[in-house]
Design a protein around this nucleic acid. Structure first.
Lengths: 316, 316
DNA sequence: CTGAAAGCGCTAACAT
DNA sequence: ATGTTAGCGCTTTCAG
């Protein structure tokens, strides 16, 4: 019975009593079958083990729960990720998708899902993906500019960048922001100082090897995420140099540990809770038809610079 | 059709063709309803955001996926956690539970679930919970002893301990292992050196405040997890002391970042992947009746000491 | 080996 | 305001 209003108060009471007495619970499987709605969403992550994603997952689960939705985690992709995601929906296991993986070909997925009855999905990514997709993102470009600005304000002129990977043909927003900020400040972009990592600590470690071999080193580095900054500091310390005396470092994300690193990490905080909450809320509105699919849902969250010990004026 | 053998090869072929042609996908909701099986398990975590749990979640999702099971994440508990978990099962949303939260009253949950048709569940916890429950755990007691042994071997005699919280009336295995190892080595247990934290970095930070105020400080500290060790180091460095010169530190877990801390953290590695995989495998066996509920499934995984830079012989 | 039919528990539509 | 019924898509049983 879905219309509580259609029944008299007295009957309602008797029903409630019976429910309490017998311990009745609605059978979700039957309801799903009948309603063609699973009250479940899927969240697809490239890697749950990553502390950045897990906090978001937290927020997604919270928000979904408040709307009575369960959250299925889809962690890794087999050979054909799109095929695999399709299954969740065509088998009516789930009503929608929060996609945290720009390495998936979102437009292709879109057309796949549309072919079988338009499953709504929301992308959470750093890149500004196709404008017809629902997207929640941070102001990566602008945040990166502000990160550089912070270093410039401290007096740095020799600034390097450790970027994340290039995703498909999308513009890497953080790298773009870095480059434009350097140009805006008339600072030289040295090719050697533009390094590429893949968002894990070991790639920061490797970049530091590089850094240490340089004869002309930058006095500051803007890292595209905190984990790479962590790896970088690790190697630098190992070589007997110290941060921020020998090199200032700005990270990105503000993972929970950033505050407790040595030195505490200056970083651009992403509102990860908001990313998770907002995307889930939008998805559920879409599923329940409260929001029209056109125009696409778009949200950009502002990042916030958190100044800690890893940045200081240059030493020379 | 569930018995592929009952049909002739030729018919089978025709069926497969039809499937390919029409893009048929099995409707999970209907199957669940008919079979009274959701092919879904629930994983209950105290906090997904914690990097320790998220890696395990990773493994659980993997293993479940290989058996065709989906994984629902149940993150936080409302007022009555047991009531709330019950719902997943009585509403036939899920067939079993991996419970990563010893703060839940597992025996009470057990009886609740048994009342409504015996939902199988497996507990993953550090404490040795009731022997009639299915449990996957690490050899926490023994691992802690070995952690102390490592410090003793380096020449430490003044050893402190930063413990995790006390869960219900269970014995804190790591603290017990620490105490027994100290006794076995005829080392003095100083009350001041026995501190309590709650597994988050800030509690390690707070413990270090304490440490710094001591007139007679231990030369080494065994922390019940890596995050507390991180917080501890952070505060100690801030005070101008260094690790391991002024204090040696052993952590527990070997979270992915431990290797990249400054100094790299010596720690007891838990096989978190195994914890996740094994518990899920056992749960699915239980669900599918391949394993009999009696005797309970019990597994204890050995931890492994990973020696890095945060431990050294005492300096004086 | 194949076809037919009942029914899992629910909801929406219709009848009273 | 309440009662009845058909049918969601599947599996299982029973008949051919």
């Amino acid at each position: 019975m879905s219309s509580p209003e259609r029944v008299s108060v007295r009957t309602r009471e008797r029903i409630d009593q019976a429910i309490a007495a017998t311990g009745y619970t609605l059978n979700q499987a039957a309801q799903s079958l009948r309603r063609q709605r699973a009250k479940t969403i899927v969240i697809a992550l490239p890697n749950v083990g990553n502390p950045f994603y897990s906090t978001i997952l937290d927020a997604v689960v919270m928000e979904a729960g408040e709307h009575g939705y369960g959250v299925l985690v889809a962690n890794r992709q087999p050979d054909d990720p799109i095929e695999w995601l399709r299954d969740y929906f065509f088998s009516s296991r789930a009503d929608g998708l929060v996609l945290f993986d720009a390495t998936l070909d979102a437009p292709a997925l879109q057309s796949q899902l549309a072919a079988h009855g338009d499953v709504p999905f929301v992308v959470v990514a750093d890149e500004v993906v196709e404008p017809f997709l629902n997207l929640v993102t941070s102001d990566n470009y602008d945040a990166s500019r502000r990160a550089v600005q912070h270093l410039v304000a401290l007096g740095h002129t020799k600034i390097g960048h450790l970027s994340g990977p290039q995703i498909g043909h999308y513009r890497n927003e953080r790298t773009a922001g870095f480059i434009d900020a350097m140009k805006a400040n008339d600072l030289k972009l040295c090719d050697d100082w533009l390094m590429r990592g893949n968002h894990v600590a070991s790639s920061g470690f490797a970049a530091a090897e590089n850094f240490l071999r340089m004869t002309n080193r930058p006095s500051a580095l803007f890292c595209a995420n905190d984990e790479m900054a962590l790896g970088f500091i690790s190697r630098v310390h190992q070589a007997g140099l110290t941060c921020p005396q020998d090199v200032s470092l700005v990270g990105f994300d503000d993972i929970s540990m950033a505050e407790f690193l040595s030195p505490p990490l200056t970083t651009m905080r992403q509102k990860r809770n908001e990313l998770g909450r907002l995307s889930t809320e939008a998805l559920i509105s879409l599923i329940e038809g409260r929001r029209k699919p056109q125009p696409p849902f778009r949200a950009t969250l502002r990042c916030e610079l958190v100044v800690r010990g890893s940045t200081a004026p240059p030493c020379s």
